[in-house]
């Protein structure tokens, strides 16, 4: 997990804008979404991206992820008790964007009370309550990634509940 001291580092990296792309994870190829002869479908198609396996997750130890592409950091957490939107055998695995939907600062996870906290302007979100903003400036709750677990225990992200900061479309 990103430790608390990493908050500022993460923020600087994100301000540079290219840190995640530079990580070299295979990103969905960016192709323009220009109007074409074929009519565009009514909603966007999300990639199905493997985030990990149920067996590899320990309770309250968040794992950094990137979804729907390498420029969109997020977090995958096993909470140890069933929660809203939770998947897996215990219904306790959730994933969220870690870009604050106020002004896009990169947030850190507080394992003590299981919140994501924003160093930008002090907003915080409850990962045990569907990403509800506990207090803050954002005008939406935290984008939560839709998860699916297959029979092997592999966890896939396949959608997102809200618009991710810094994009007009969740898939670029």
């Amino acid at each position: 997990m990103r430790c608390k001291k990493m908050v500022d580092v993460g923020r600087r990296q994100f301000l540079r804008g290219s840190a995640f792309a530079a990580a070299g994870v295979a990103a969905t190829t960016v192709t323009g979404t220009q109007a074409s002869a074929t009519p565009a479908p009514a909603q966007i198609d999300y990639p199905s991206t493997k985030l990990g396996n149920v067996a590899d997750l320990a309770v309250n130890e968040p794992v950094d992820i990137e979804y729907p592409d390498a420029d969109s950091p997020g977090v995958l957490i096993k909470l140890g008790q069933q929660v809203e939107g939770g998947v897996g055998p215990d219904g306790d695995i959730v994933a969220f964007s870690t870009l604050c939907p106020h002004k896009g600062y990169f947030m850190s996870y507080n394992a003590d009370d299981r919140t994501l906290n924003c160093p930008g302007h002090f907003s915080r979100f409850d990962v045990e309550a569907g990403g509800q903003q506990v207090w803050g400036h954002a005008t939406q709750n935290l984008p939560q990634f839709t998860l699916r677990v297959d029979e092997k225990g592999d966890i896939y992200a396949e959608g997102c509940s809200d618009l991710i900061f810094g994009r007009m479309s969740n898939t670029l």
Partner: peptide
């Protein structure tokens, strides 16, 4: 707008 915008960058929240 085809790029992810940085913190404090342009964004239209719903």
């Amino acid at each position: 707008l085809s790029e992810q915008q940085p913190a404090e960058g342009t964004w239209v929240a719903p």
